[in-house]
Amino acid sequence: MTDLKHHRGMTVRRLAVAVLAAAAAGCSTTVAGTPVAAGGDADTDLVLAYFTALNDAGEQGADSQADFLRRTQHPDFTDRFCDLDDLVVRMAPVASTLRPDPDWKPEKSADAPRGDTYVIAVTVTIRRGTATLGEQIGSQRVVLLGGEAYGFTPCPAE
């Protein structure tokens, strides 16, 4: 009987050590670099307000949202505005993912946009009328320039 208790005790201890070692190995993550805080509450508020206005415009319809996107297209990239036709996008940002992205350049661009560029994770829902055509998770850039938030019109896949 004593041997059985001793055997069970050893098995439980070995199992506990194995579980703790596995948990420590899986949970210990080192991220290279130094964390950089976003520009503060004011910048966060501007970025999130951009998405609120984008979604509010989308609730008014495709034409209203296209007007919003045209007005808020980054001034250095107005030649890259995409016509979404009758599509409406809804972007739900995840505020905790907002971070500076100073080295980002739009595709096929040699230069970064003027201003402070931020990247944020968003869930994008694409609608035509009342029908949802798709949903995906991605990253969206917003640039703060002169106290205004500017974006880059999403372009539908060809």
Rank of each mutant, 00 (worst) to 15 (best):
P154H: 02
C27N: 11
R71K: 08
G146D: 08
A66S: 11
A37M: 14
V88A: 02
Y150M: 02
D101E: 13
G134T: 02
D116C: 08
T130H: 14
F81S: 02
A149E: 00
R99F: 05
R141E: 04
A149P: 01
I120V: 08
G115Q: 02
D86H: 10
C82Y: 04
K5W: 13
L84I: 04
G115F: 04
D85Q: 12
I137R: 10
A21T: 11
G58R: 00
L48S: 03
A18M: 15
G129I: 05
Y50Q: 00
G129E: 05
A112L: 10
H7R: 11
L15I: 12
G40Q: 04
Q140T: 09
L145I: 03
D41Y: 11
A112H: 06
S96Q: 10
F68S: 00
A25R: 07
D101A: 14
H7I: 13
G146E: 05
E158H: 14
Y150W: 14
A157V: 10
Q65F: 01
V17N: 10
Y150F: 09
L4C: 15
Y118M: 02
S28A: 10
V36W: 03
A42C: 06
V47L: 04
R99M: 12
E107I: 13
D67T: 11
A62P: 02
V89R: 01
D101G: 12
C27R: 12
D103R: 12
P93D: 01
A37C: 11
Q60P: 13
A131I: 13
T52Q: 14
V17M: 07
A37F: 06
V124A: 05
K105Y: 05
L87K: 03
P154Y: 01
A25T: 11
T130W: 12
M10D: 15
S28H: 13
R90V: 12
T132S: 15
V19I: 10
T132D: 12
T117D: 02
E107M: 12
T117V: 11
A24C: 14
D41Q: 06
D79P: 02
P113K: 01
A66W: 00
L15T: 10
S96K: 15
V124M: 07
I126P: 00
D76P: 01
V19R: 05
E107P: 09
R71T: 08
R70P: 05
L87Y: 04
L20K: 06
H74R: 01
R8K: 09
T125D: 15
G40N: 06
D67A: 14
S64C: 08
P75T: 03
P156S: 09
A57C: 07
C155V: 03
F77D: 01
S96V: 13
R128C: 08
G61C: 06
T130F: 09
A32T: 15
R70C: 11
T52R: 10
A21W: 14
S109W: 06
R127I: 04
T123K: 14
D79S: 10
A24W: 15
S96L: 15
A38Q: 08
A23H: 13
L48I: 06
L98N: 04
D76C: 03
M1C: 13
V31F: 14
T11F: 07
P35Q: 04
L15N: 12
D76V: 03
L69W: 00
